[in-house]
Write a protein that binds this DNA or RNA. Structure first.
Length: 665
DNA sequence: GCACTGACCGTTTTT
DNA sequence: CGGTCAGTGC
């Protein structure tokens, strides 16, 4: 029966792990250090729950990234074995997709359309720009990006425009509060939410509608939360609302790996767990199976410099190992060159494979030099993050076309494509139409139907607007019967988007690259169509907004791909590599200058970031720094990171390190 | 309506 | 250095 398909629990779990896996009811806090088999424990726990007759579909596991969710899905699927078709699986999703699903069912109660759009970073910037223009704040005083940062900070603390206005202290914050009000109004009238709203609206929904809250909470009997140290206020309250009744809540986290404080995550949540759930069982996982003793000793020395933390010491199961190296170079190009050279020679001598290596850095501008060298050396590599596929202009255009089809109230998307490619609806015409929309407080799309009544609009423009409306409406109707990918592909051809690309870019190589991204979007849509249970264009857009890139299709190629990985320290959390190069170990970079300037505990978070980097390494760790680094085109001298001294236990005596480090690059 | 030019200016991390 | 933006000229 069921038990027969479930893989039995392995015998090599240590007592603490076994304890965490076997405790199936009531609240539990698992304090799991880096490399202590956390994922293993979580997945076996899910399997164990099912073995003890918990209906799989009533188990919910929440993760913070899509990657983590995907991995957990795969591993649990493995444990559950091949189950007959239609067998329910546990629900494993990110916080944000969980909220989307909840909001789909209830958001009308908050005054949004059921078919709301999710605005990503680029869309948010457009709205922010318009809000600032409205209140006549010049770019020099407050840029859209700055506004978004402030607004996001407010939102993650569940502060809404009225509170923000009274909380604002500096001039900048007062302006931001005014812009925030307009920003939020614009989102709502466009029927859209941003990333923070997904959490905030869910929280608000639960507060305003006890029925919705009870219904959502009743869907699950067991709740697991991974990376609990990264929960922000809204997430914390959502979890509480969902688990309060059944109390079968298991959270897993490591306060030493809390690196999202800037996003509203509060370590206090993990430190406070026992207070909120007094009957909670606490399990500590302190045996590290990942790194050699040499690497772990360094990590322990480093993190000990942080004051506020759950006191714990990771014990290495793997003894010995090569001592980590610190290498310094004269500038960032030789840093990149030498690191790549070292990797190359190991691969050439068959001592290692590309997939054994990770190059980790603090900021997204750092990988450039490494990419160059890797290309030159003809080594396969994957760059995680950075400029996303979905940030490309032409991709955004195509997605905007899709959103105009599915979300008639979405103004940002409509504005983006209303004259792209140029179709005779120029800036002046758009301005007049927009004026009418704003003065009548109606969606721009509706106003397009009355173009003839707009004073000052030339006949040619009225015609153009009419043609555009027919075009969109025609394709909207087709969407009811035909597969989305067909409709979208036709729409792109009808508007002659390829001609637009060829006009904009002179180089044939550019033209080809740009057009192939357009094709890739259509392919992604077709792929989604095939795997989704009930595919809709709107569903695809949700996927894109939440997943960033098409993880499903990537899965095979990504896993199969034997490539060196380049990524930020933030993206590296939860992953492990045989050999890690932690590059750019300099003051100003790690710790980042912004954190050095900020008062309070910003440095502690940078230290945790460094700790995360160090503990990614299984066998070999190399820390590098460059004595000079280009900034705005000019080379500038650097200072070795304070963390290097701490790692070596020489924090009080920097001179000693300088002598010791004469080792040549 | 659109392409081109030169001045200006900034540094983080992500769902 | 590289991206953005206002201003200019067709």
């Amino acid at each position: 029966m069921l038990d027969a398909v479930l893989k039995s629990m392995p015998h090599d779990l240590n007592p603490a792990q076994r304890d965490a896996v076997n405790t199936l009811s009531g609240p539990m806090l698992v304090l799991a250090g880096a490399g202590t088999g956390k994922t293993r424990v979580v997945t076996y726990r899910i399997a164990e729950l099912i073995k003890h007759r918990a209906p799989p579909e009533r188990i919910l596991a929440v993760t913070f990234t899509n990657k983590a969710a995907g991995e957990m899905q795969e591993r649990t699927a493995e444990l559950l074995g091949k189950r007959r078709n239609g067998a329910q699986r546990p629900e494993i999703s990110t916080f944000h997709s969980l909220c989307v699903r909840i909001l789909r069912r209830h958001i009308v109660k908050l005054g949004y359309p059921a078919q709301f759009a999710i605005y990503d970073r680029g869309d948010q910037e457009s709205v922010a720009r318009a809000a600032l223009r409205d209140i006549k704040v010049p770019n020099a005083v407050l840029r859209p990006g700055d506004l978004l940062a402030i607004v996001s900070r407010w939102k993650t603390a569940s502060i809404r425009p009225p509170e923000a206005a009274s909380l604002a202290q500096s001039d900048k914050e007062h302006l931001a509060a005014m812009a925030y009000r307009r920003y939020q109004k614009a989102l709502k009238s466009a029927g859209a939410v941003d990333f923070d709203d997904l959490l905030l609206c869910t929280e608000e929904l639960f507060a305003k509608s006890p029925d919705a809250r009870a219904a959502e909470a009743a869907r699950f009997s067991h709740l697991l939360v991974d990376e609990y140290q990264d929960t922000n206020g809204a997430q914390y309250r959502i979890i509480k609302a969902l688990a309060e009744k059944h109390r079968n809540l298991c959270v897993v986290g490591d306060d030493d790996q809390s690196i999202y404080g800037w996003r509203g995550a509060e370590v206090t949540h993990i430190l406070r767990f026992q207070h909120d759930w007094p009957e909670a069982k606490v399990v500590r996982l302190e045996e590290n199976y990942r790194s050699t003793d040499a690497i772990l000793a360094m990590a322990n020395r480093l993190i000990a410099y942080n004051r506020h933390r759950h006191d714990k010491v990771l014990r290495a199961i793997r003894t010995g190992g090569e001592p980590p190296r610190i290498l310094q170079y004269s500038d960032e190009s030789s840093e990149a060159k030498e690191v790549v050279e070292e990797i190359n020679s190991q691969i050439f001598r068959r001592l290692a494979e590309p997939r054994d290596f990770a190059i980790l850095f603090r900021t997204n501008e750092q990988p450039r030099a490494f990419e160059q060298e890797l290309r030159r050396a003809k080594l396969p590599y994957t760059l995680i993050g950075g400029m996303s596929f979905y940030d490309r202009k032409e991709v955004r255009d195509v997605l905007a076309y899709c959103r105009v089809l599915t979300h008639p109230r979405d103004e940002v998307s409509l504005m983006r494509i209303i004259n792209t490619p140029a179709r005779g609806i120029g800036a002046k015409a758009v301005e007049l139409l927009l004026e009418r929309a704003v003065s009548q407080a109606r969606p721009l799309w509706e106003v397009l139907g009355e173009a003839a009544e707009v004073a000052g609009l030339p006949a040619a423009a009225i015609d153009a607007v009419g043609t555009f409306r027919k075009l969109v409406e025609g394709h909207r109707r087709r969407l009811e019967r035909e597969p989305p990918s067909q409709v979208v592909s036709d729409l792109i051809h009808t508007v002659r988007y390829q001609d637009e690309i060829n006009r904009q870019y002179k180089e044939p190589a550019d033209q080809l690259a740009r057009w192939s991204s357009v094709e890739e979007v259509v392919n992604a849509l077709a792929g989604y169509q095939q795997r989704a249970k009930s595919p809709t264009l709107a569903g695809f857009l949700d996927d894109v907004a939440l997943a960033g890139r098409d993880e499903q299709d990537d899965k095979e190629s990504k896993l199969a791909r034997n490539a060196i990985v380049l990524m930020t320290l933030h993206s590296a959390k939860g992953l492990e590599y045989s050999q890690v190069y932690l590059v750019g170990m300099e003051e100003g970079l790690l710790p980042h200058s912004r954190s050095v300037a900020a008062e309070g505990s910003a440095i502690d978070e940078e230290r945790r970031l460094c700790y995360v980097g160090v503990t990614r390494a299984k066998d070999k760790l190399t820390l590098t720094l460059s004595l000079s680094r280009n900034k705005w085109g000019k080379p500038r001298d650097t200072t070795p990171s304070r963390f290097l001294f701490e790692l070596l236990g020489k924090a009080d005596n920097p001179e000693a390190l300088r002598k010791k480090k004469q080792r040549p690059a």
